[in-house]
C-alpha cells in the first residue's frame, strides 16, 4: 500500500513538472525571440505618417497568457498633420509587431518594436532609423 501511494505521489509530481515545463514553452509566444524584446509602455506614437501615403497602423501582439494574437488597428484619415498620428493608451504585452498600411499596398509592412532601426524614448516610438532591410516583414 505504501509503495502504491509512493508511486501515485511520484506520478502526480512528474505530471506537475511536465505541466509546468509545457506551460513555460507556451509562454514564449509566437513572436518572442532573444533578439527582440518589448520593454512595455502605455503609449505609442508614429510620427509624420500623414505626410506620405500611410493610411493606417496595426499593432499585432501576443497577450502572454493564452497565446492569443491581439490586433490594434488605427486608421489614419486626416491629411496634412505632421506629428501625432497614433496613440494607444493601453498596456501592451511583450513582442508586438507594428504594421504600417499604406495606400496601394496590398500587404502590411511589419517590424518588431525593439529593432535597432527604431528610436524608443521610453514613451513614444519614433521611426527615425533606417529599417533593417532583411527584417521588414510583409504579412
Amino acid at each position: 500500500m505504501n509503495t502504491k501511494r509512493f508511486l501515485l505521489l511520484l506520478g502526480i509530481a512528474l505530471a506537475m513538472m511536465l505541466a509546468v515545463s509545457c506551460s513555460d514553452d507556451t509562454n514564449t509566444g509566437p513572436y518572442e525571440t532573444d533578439e527582440f524584446y518589448y520593454h512595455g509602455s502605455d503609449s505609442f506614437k508614429v510620427i509624420n505618417a500623414s505626410e506620405h501615403d500611410i493610411t493606417g497602423v496595426t499593432i499585432r501582439t501576443w497577450d502572454g497568457a493564452d497565446s492569443t494574437i491581439i490586433e490594434y488597428n488605427e486608421l489614419i484619415s486626416k491629411k496634412g498633420g505632421s506629428k501625432s498620428l497614433l496613440m494607444l493608451n493601453e498596456v501592451l504585452p511583450r513582442n508586438p509587431l507594428m504594421c504600417i498600411k499604406a495606400e496601394n499596398r496590398p500587404k502590411l509592412d511589419c517590424i518588431r518594436f525593439n529593432s535597432p532601426s527604431y528610436t524608443w524614448d521610453g514613451k513614444d516610438l519614433y521611426i527615425t532609423r533606417l529599417p533593417h532591410p532583411l527584417e521588414m516583414e510583409a504579412l
Partner: peptide, 19 residues
C-alpha cells in the same frame, strides 16, 4: 530591391521622406 520592393522607397515611407 528586397523581395521586389525598392528599399529607398520603403524607407522613405517609414521615415517621412527623410531618406
Amino acid at each position: 530591391r528586397i523581395d521586389g520592393k525598392d528599399y529607398v522607397k520603403e524607407a522613405n515611407i517609414l521615415l517621412a521622406n527623410n531618406v
